[in-house]
């Protein structure tokens, strides 16, 4: 069996265009992509079912019947696509109601965790660097107190510094 090249090319174009649209951040564009992909795949089922023939109704057709199974499958797939389309449209509408856009947004918590990771922050548990800095600060504080006792800085200058 040699498949119908025209149908095959149409199916490929539909699926390719669909995939391109599906990659968009806009939910409605992605939905269009989904619809195109769905139609392309349905066409693929028809191509795969072999050569065209008479309507597959027993007793009403003479000669070779078309394969009825892919037609039943495609019909089911169309119904399912319709249901999914209805839901995605509702979702896009709700998304637009909420923030005026229908764009797919990033996960805020994921981004927060990523920022923590980039700054080497382990959350509430102090990092090794923070612990080291705390020890250093404590050391500097006690040491400066010791220095103050030995040679206290002139108070006027200190206050001026603060005032500036």
């Amino acid at each position: 069996m040699s498949p119908n090249l025209t149908l095959l090319l149409v199916a490929c174009t539909l699926i390719g265009t669909g995939v391109y649209l599906f990659l968009s951040r806009s939910l409605v564009r992605a939905l269009m992509g989904f619809l195109l992909m769905g139609n392309g795949i349905n066409l693929l089922f028809i191509v795969g079912s072999g050569p065209a023939g008479q309507p597959p109704i027993v007793g009403h057709s003479e000669g070779v019947m078309a394969d009825p199974v892919p037609q039943a499958l495609v019909l089911t797939a169309i119904v399912i696509t319709l249901g999914m389309t209805a839901f995605v449209l509702a979702l896009a509408h709700r998304s637009r109601q909420l923030d005026g856009l229908d764009l797919v947004r990033d996960d805020a918590e994921s981004r927060r965790i990523l920022e923590l990771a980039e700054t080497d922050n382990l959350g509430s548990v102090p990092t090794a660097r923070e612990t080291a800095e705390a020890i250093q600060a404590e050391g500097a504080r006690t040491e400066s107190r010791f220095h103050e006792e030995v040679a206290p800085p002139p108070p006027e200058e200190h206050e001026k510094g603060v005032g500036r």
Partner: peptide, 23 residues
């Protein structure tokens, strides 16, 4: 939105493979 789009895509991949299996 994330979940729906990913699920739809995986369904499409599954559907393509069924079509090819039948063919």
């Amino acid at each position: 939105t994330t979940y729906v789009l990913v699920s739809l895509l995986s369904s499409m991949i599954f559907l393509v493979s069924i079509g090819l299996v039948y063919a």
